[in-house]
Design a protein around this nucleic acid. Structure first.
Lengths: 256, 256
DNA sequence: TCAATAGTGTCTTTAAGACATTATAAC
DNA sequence: GTTATAATGTCTTAAAGACACTATTGA
């Protein structure tokens, strides 16, 4: 089917080709800080995004999303994972492709078609982060603050889109688990959801998740080896039931 | 910030760059054929995908998704819309980006990072379709058949992914309207959903959509100028209420 | 004791699910 | 009357929503 005669007719060099295919990553984490007031209480949580300060042209000195150019020998996803590893020292976390950015002149270096991912990382995993060759500084910013900053390239748009996607995924998938330990209390889960989606509110949250089918099998109570309910009093005087996510993948429908 | 001194340090030509950024489009339509048996009855519907037969190397003679190379002066979305226009003569339809395909050697012509879209087109709009320069033939195939064919490049994977995405969107968004007239009966809607998502079944479908909040405001009854319910007897002896989609964008949550 | 979080009781309303029944009108 | 689709009646069960109330235990 692929005859040499035909092959000679094609030459990529006849066409203008892209100058690069970068992968940019919006790395989200939730930081926890102790409430100064109380002894045992739920921490304050805040959604943060990792930015780097550029030390090279273009946009030298400005904050930007971490990213780097894809190589011919890897997929874009592999580039993104490599970049995530280089930037934070973490792998094996939730990373998800969400959009492509290809507006002409979005990058003064040339025709750059950028592939945007978001990653969800535990705060603890980011301890190892450090400045690398391309960055003068690496730092976490509260997303609300980052959205008000003048970021390099079209990175504010990318961040905006990423945030929208993560919020949607938070409500429709079980990605909340990426920000939680394996076993967690309902209060923790509720707090994590609210940290990502501030407008989420449900006065009967515990009741609703607890009362059978509503949770659709996505969450189950943790029992100890004796089959007794496993509790935690990490955040409260009264011990709370621990839950975990099951492997069930929820499916939603507007036509119920 | 962007000093000439720094600019001179960057040269795209130092790096291996992609040989092209194609956009490939999975064009879906639903064909309707009269049931031979009955006089007035719902048509048989089938989900179809548009494929082209390649007349050039590589994969000469094989069926492939329509697509083409993106230009430096346009976004990838614009490329896809241009390609859709060239291939089918339609514009202004639902077109949506869903993934990137970047496996090394996925294209024998070189390092090609492909951007995949799906488009949903009314059967009527495809009347104008025709073969163009790149294609020996253009034809609709039932998706189930297309999935069993040996398509060019990684197009079977792209088609598989597109179908999965369209099925998910069919259940969670109002894209059913892309396959329906502005005003439609509940039977038509139900049939369109089932055409795309065969396993969907709901014995009480009409009842459920009809009984208030369940439809979450996404669908409303059509009234005539006198405020009377507007009916259609196109598909049945007994006239059926017509409905339309509102502009409400449904939001779903696993945490209800 | 109180503070902070966890969890239950109770009642009302709404929706889901099943399934039989009735309605309409062309033929 | 038959046929094909449209729509309602009725009953049962499950879930949502509100909100007051009780529980636990360290400080």
């Amino acid at each position: 089917m692929q005859t040499p005669e035909n092959e000679t007719n094609y030459s990529a060099s006849k066409y203008r080709t892209p100058d690069g295919a970068p992968a940019d990553i919006v790395i989200f984490t939730i930081t926890s800080t102790e409430k100064p007031t109380a002894k045992k209480s739920l921490p304050n949580r805040e959604l943060q995004v990792l930015l780097i300060e550029r030390k090279q042209w273009p946009f030298t000195g400005q904050w930007a999303l971490p990213g780097g150019f894809s190589k011919e020998t890897e997929t874009i996803l592999e580039s993104a994972k490599r970049e995530l590893w280089e930037e934070t020292g973490v792998d094996d976390v939730h990373i998800e492709y969400f959009n492509v950015y290809s507006a002409p002149n979005r990058d003064p270096r040339g025709w750059m078609i950028s592939h945007a991912f978001f990653a969800l990382v535990h705060e603890d995993d980011l301890a190892r982060r450090r400045a690398d060759d391309d960055a003068a500084d690496v730092r976490l910013f509260p997303v609300e603050k980052a959205l008000r900053m003048e970021l390099a390239f079209d990175h504010r748009q990318i961040l905006t889109d990423a945030l929208q996607r993560v919020r949607q995924q938070m409500m429709t998938t079980t990605i909340a688990k990426e920000f939680l330990p394996d076993e967690f209390t309902m209060s923790e889960l509720y707090q994590v959801i609210q940290t990502v989606v501030p407008e989420f509110e449900d006065k009967n949250f515990i009741r609703k998740i607890t009362s059978t089918q509503s949770r659709k099998g996505i969450i189950e109570e943790v029992k100890d080896r004796n089959g007794q309910p496993k509790l935690s009093n990490q955040y409260s005087q009264r011990a709370a039931q621990l839950y975990r996510f099951t492997d069930v993948v929820p499916t939603l429908s507007i036509y119920s």
